[in-house]
């Protein structure tokens, strides 16, 4: 339970960085923290206390294997999620670079040319 609480606290930290910070780099860091908090949550969901890695050995009894290993599915999901997160972060960093070249600042409030 403590672990879940900490994961959600980390989610909150990421959300705060993403929404409240004016510096674009800090926003990106917030987003990365947010994504990793979700990945952590996924792994935690699949974890079963005291069980081993889900690798089926030749000749191992299937029932004993299922009873003795953690849930492998969330680990697979996390791999996909990490790749997606990497793509989004790279794109975001490329945009931050371009915006910094153009405006010479990282402060979002000082570059807002878009009218609502």
């Amino acid at each position: 339970m403590t672990f879940y609480a900490l994961t959600f606290a980390l989610l909150g930290v990421g959300l705060y960085g993403l929404l409240a910070k004016r510096n674009m780099l800090k926003k990106v860091l917030g987003l990365v923290i947010l994504e990793y908090a979700v990945n952590l949550l996924l792994v935690a969901v699949g974890y079963r206390a005291g069980r081993g890695a889900p690798i089926l050995q030749p000749g191992e009894d299937p029932a004993a294997f299922v009873a003795g290993s953690v849930d492998p599915l969330p680990q697979v999901l996390v791999l996909t999620s990490i790749v997606i997160g990497l793509g989004a972060t790279m794109l975001l960093m490329a945009m931050v670079l371009r915006l910094h070249q153009r405006y010479g600042t990282l402060d979002v409030d000082r570059m807002d040319r878009l009218k609502g």
Binding site: L15, L18, M24, K27, L31, L34, E35, V38, L42, S81, I84, A88, L91, L92, M95, V96, R98, L99, R102, Y103, M111, D112, R113, L114
Partner: peptide, 22 residues
């Protein structure tokens, strides 16, 4: 400049939304 600013805003909100879905 305007396009990348719009895309930045879109990406941040869009990724936040996707994270919520996940």
């Amino acid at each position: 400049g305007t396009e990348i600013e719009a895309a930045f805003k879109y990406l941040v909100l869009g990724t936040l939304a996707s994270t919520a879905i996940l």
